[in-house]
Design a protein around this nucleic acid. Structure first.
Lengths: 222, 222
DNA sequence: GGCGAACCGTACCGTACGGTACTGTGAATG
DNA sequence: CATTCACAGTACCGTACGGTACGGTTCGCC
């Protein structure tokens, strides 16, 4: 497991991190509407003036919340040495389950809703921030995994991003959006295991070279 | 092309539909923040009092907007008679392109953002409304297509919903969410054709019986 | 013409929020 | 002890929004 450093982002003091925690709690519980500056100040036992001194304005607070949360959700690089068909499959399934659980987390859902709500307003960088921090991070893990699989002769693809896009779609489909729209995420969380298995099986049938099933002769994709 | 009737929803007068059109325009242009009752009234040249008389309150207006837009986006049942491997593929690609274009439409994006923003607040039925109206509708078309493909001996699957979920994931992946987060949808719209082809090819490799490529012996899926 | 319904435009009200300023306080610093 | 700093708590201000009320106008109908 390795920590991904993000030095281009201001780090906050423990006290400020605690405030950000309170703000996240507030956002998760009550949605964006409940996330008022006075509410954050009250919940965190700090003054509004301090909020504005630390984070500039409301948008700064939101950005800080996203950055803070992203700094907490760290993915490990499962070190993919000695990959076999079996261990590759295991790693992929594990990745899929982790991905689904991250996406279904209430903090993740709340932040995505927040960023989407701000996305209409031009110049709001929350969307790209979430995109950068979230997907890029988890995508790096998947990319390394895919690359390792290819190097081990277990996977066949030309474009790594394309392969990852396919994997992502197979795993998530429209589940993320449905959860964002309010569908009960807890109810469907128990199916994550089965869903991960299904998606990885399909992915290996598409991109796998020896998966115990049919193996396409040339690994052609088109 | 057949129209899908939705009699369980109150129909509005032409004047009211025009007002809803203005409201949608306003929402698309300025986001949810711009969608104020006074703004809608001004844009539609009507009075706030009429708005409240017609739609009850703001939430009623939002619901009416979703219902109205859904009533405009109608999908056709491509009548799938005499399906061959080639025509099935064509129909699937057409479906995929239509789906991507619907999802990338600015009205669709704006309404999804709106519903997601309201999703945190309990009791808001906008999310389920969009879900019902949007996905169910387009899913019916896909379901019929898949069923026809199976009846013609071209597709092999047990669970139709599962197959559709896979197809949807292959087509859309996280593209919808990225667009909702503000990524420029126009820039990526030109790749919809290639993306549709790719997704359908992958889908046919997973579920197809004779697609001109490798055909798995038993059509086994797990 | 008289009448009522529908409706536009606007003024109005209560409230809530973002942001600022001020006061008090406790702890560090010299 | 005096000064300074960081901060909490709170009062305050301007504004914007949801919702309501009211006067004036058009249109159909008797």
């Amino acid at each position: 497991m390795q920590l991904a450093a993000h030095p281009h982002q201001p780090d906050y003091s423990p006290r400020q991190n605690a405030v950000l925690d309170s703000a996240l709690r507030l956002l998760v519980d009550g949605g964006e509407k409940a996330l008022t500056t006075a509410g954050v100040a009250r919940a965190a036992n700090c003054s509004k003036e301090s909020l504005y001194k630390w984070f500039g304005d409301r948008d700064g607070l939101l950005s800080a919340m996203i950055g803070y949360q992203a700094s907490k959700v760290r993915t490990f690089d499962d070190n993919a040495e000695a990959l076999t068909a079996v261990t590759l499959r295991e790693h992929l399934v594990l990745f899929a389950r982790d991905l689904l659980e991250v996406l279904a987390g209430d903090v993740s859902l709340a932040l995505n809703r927040l960023a989407i709500g701000q996305a209409s307003r031009e110049g709001s960088k929350l969307g790209s921030m979430l995109q950068e921090r979230g997907r890029r991070q988890v995508g790096k893990r998947a990319g390394a995994l895919l690359e390792a699989g290819r190097n081990a002769g277990l996977l066949a693809f030309d474009d790594r991003d394309e392969a990852y896009d396919t994997l992502y779609g197979l795993i998530v489909s429209d589940l993320h959006l449905r959860m964002l729209l309010g569908e009960d995420s807890g109810r469907m969380a128990k199916d994550f295991g089965r869903r991960a298995e299904r998606a990885v099986s399909a992915f290996l049938r598409l991109y796998g070279r020896e998966n115990g099933s049919v193996q396409p002769k040339g690994g052609r994709k088109t």
